[in-house]
Design a protein around this nucleic acid. Structure first.
Length: 364
RNA sequence: GCGAAAAUAGCUCAGUUGGUUAGAGCGUCUGACUGUGGCUCAGAAGGUCGUGGGUUCGAAUCCCAUUUUUCGCC
């Protein structure tokens, strides 16, 4: 996987990432499609929103339909009809989100899956194998994602486990690297010395890319910003940096400013299903009574299909009825909103005017 | 016309042998959501208990009258 930086402004960078399924312009936002589906959007709609990369999840695909099944169908990108660049998260986040259904040992994570309770034993090696079957362009190391507020000794212990797993993942991947890339994940919660230790250790393993993990697991926004700000420069400058699971439009701008190249978050799609639309002046809840007679688009000046087709009043009407299309219309808008924000940030960097323009891109 | 049943939140209904500020679901309103099990979760507003009398220390609850609705019978 080749990564080239075209332009740098301060720490912010714009570049190109070459994947087996196409060249991706950085910085970019990945749309979350956990189970090989972006909830509420067709492939055509994803393309029309100018999606670059779709993210799916190892744990969920391993549970259903099974990684071999995805492989037999031609791999993730083909299976879901997307045929573009993809990334799979390793299942590390499910260590956090499905905490009641798993047990962590030095060997790996034992899940009792949420569908039929059957056991899924995810070792670092197995996580790589499964992701190789699934076939995403970028695979993630298995990591342990502890709650941000856990005590320091727990965080450090967990970080060391993640390091051991990162090495095992890399060794497994190195046996037969193929075209797929494998990214390491730095942990360390809110402790700067641990973050530094983690970044340095992972860098020594020489991954094609690096992620800042353990953000978006219960911390406050200022803490997320501080840690990303602190950690990003510690990761190798010539490799893509991926801030996992974050966040709001303002978080994305802060991340790009800190030198992060890749983002993903459920926010645009999940919030859309709850009828919250993003706009450059902040999010709006379309169920609110004040939109009952609003004949304007979700966002003035937006080029998405939703804003070209329907009004706030209409979407509110659908939302109050719980109509499926209410979620769909808002999802299309929110995804395009996020992608357009990233496009604008990239253009600002290429123009050498990141700070001048960034301030005007989101005033939420 | 006669008889019976019912009347409690916007809607559908709970409400023990009379006993503090009358509850629920849905709807409405508002908020939350950050590497997605879950179009989910949380909160708020909203009622002179059909009306008028009476009994009682105290009535949505018991009694009388009245209005409306539903069902049945002439």
């Amino acid at each position: 996987m080749r990564f080239s930086i075209e332009k740098t402004v301060g720490r912010a960078r714009a570049g190109l990432l070459e994947t087996p399924h196409g060249i991706v312009k950085t910085p970019f936002f990945m749309v979350v499609g956990t189970a090989a589906s972006v909830k509420g959007m067709t492939i055509e709609q994803l393309r029309s929103a100018k999606t670059q990369v779709v993210l799916a999840n190892t744990y969920h695909l391993a549970v259903r339909p099974g990684s071999e099944e995805v492989q037999k169908r031609g791999g993730l990108a083909k299976f879901m009809g997307w045929n573009g660049p993809t990334l799979t998260d390793s299942g590390g986040f499910q260590v956090f989100s499905l905490a009641k259904k798993r047990k962590v040992t030095p060997e790996g994570v034992r899940f009792n899956n949420h569908i039929d309770g059957k056991e899924l034993f995810l070792t670092p090696e197995r996580a790589v194998e499964i992701q190789q079957d699934i076939g995403a362009d970028i695979m993630m190391c298995l990591d342990e994602c502890p709650p941000a507020k856990a005590p320091r000794d727990e965080i450090r212990k967990s970080m060391l486990l993640t390091h051991a797993w990162a090495k095992r993942c890399r060794d497994k991947w190195a046996e037969n690297p193929g075209a797929q890339a494998l990214f390491g994940i730095a942990q360390g919660a809110l402790f700067e010395d641990l973050r530094k230790e983690s970044a340095e250790y992972l860098a020594s393993l020489d991954f094609p890319g690096y992620a800042i993990g353990g953000v978006a697991v219960g911390e406050d926004t200022p803490d997320i910003r501080r840690i990303v700000d602190f950690t990003a420069p510690l990761l190798p400058a010539d490799k893509p940096r991926y801030r996992m699971g974050v966040g709001t439009p303002a978080d994305l701008i802060a991340g790009v400013r800190a030198g992060v190249d890749m983002f993903d978050c459920v926010m645009p799609t999940r919030h859309a299903r709850h009828y919250q639309a993003f706009t450059r002046t902040g999010p709006i809840n379309l169920k609110n009574a004040c939109y009952a007679e609003d004949d304007g688009p979700l966002e003035e000046g937006c080029d998405c299909e939703t804003c070209r087709s329907v009004t706030r009043a209409y979407v509110r009407h659908l939302a109050l009825l719980g109509e499926l299309m209410a979620s769909v219309w808002v999802t299309i808008h929110n995804v395009r909103f996020y992608l357009r924000l990233m496009e604008d940030l990239r253009e600002a960097i290429l123009a050498g005017k990141f700070e001048e323009r960034a301030a005007g891109l989101y005033m939420g």
